[in-house]
Amino acid sequence: MSRRWTPGAVASRASLHFVIVLLCLVWLLPALGLLVSSFRPAQAVSGSGWWTVFTTPFDFTQYTLDNYRHVLFQDGMARAFLNSLLISVPSTVLPVLVAALAAFAFAWLRFPGRELLLLIVVGLLVVPLQTTFIPILRLYSQWGAAGTFAGLWFAHTGYGLPFAIYLLRNFFAALPRDLFESAYIDGASPWTAFWRLALPMSTPAIASLVIFQFLWVWNDLLVALIYVGGTQEVAPLTVRLSTLVGSYGQEWHVLTAAAFVTMIVPLSVFFALQRYFVRGILAGAVKG
């Protein structure tokens, strides 16, 4: 459509840009405030607004790394960072593997109860995790699994499975039928068909799922809070951060640095792999 530059059209274009830029600022400024404050000395953070640094943004003497040193080595964020990694990696690999196997069977094998099981998976997508905490926590306490990494790995696996199965099944089911039929004629087992055909052809879907599950676990607070609570040797960043909020309340130089430490990994993943992340969201809009 050719655009005519009448005064009315110019005004409406200008207001369009104005609204969009304004909204983008509303989304950016809160995060920017956090980032800037995390590099300012304690006195500066409590004495003046973070936006005042922009009067002399290139005066680097007003920035410091002290807050990060403080949260990482005095407040245990370094340990919590390691814990988050130790929790998130197995809690991503395990459910994706288990889900891929099940999703392949749902898509390409025939067995009794298949439809019913699939409907149960779809139903479970929206079950609130809250309804599972008490029984599992009790069992965990009896078994000594509360406050352990393994307890969290398996809990995240169980919780992540319905979405993972749902997403991968939809993807597997869309692969061409001939492919598997000719493989079976050539004597391939379902395992070969899964491992040599379905998986390699589904890298984009698997990538989306891996990113999604990883970020989900990395950002989780509630599940970790329930099953490991304050156990410092196991608690991930999110739990540590919420503890610091409780103990530091208004000491923003510490809290902003601590919050940013929790975000470094998700932000890197986001900027590097945004495409896959968005694809995962689009594929599974019903995740509960």
Partner: peptide, 26 residues
């Protein structure tokens, strides 16, 4: 095919039952 299916779906069914279905009912 049934045996293969059990191998493929089994782990998921066990984990989902243990972590979601049974606790919810309980």
């Amino acid at each position: 095919e049934k045996a293969w299916s059990a191998l493929f779906v089994g782990p998921a069914v066990l984990l989902v039952s243990f972590y979601l279905v049974l606790p919810t009912l309980y």
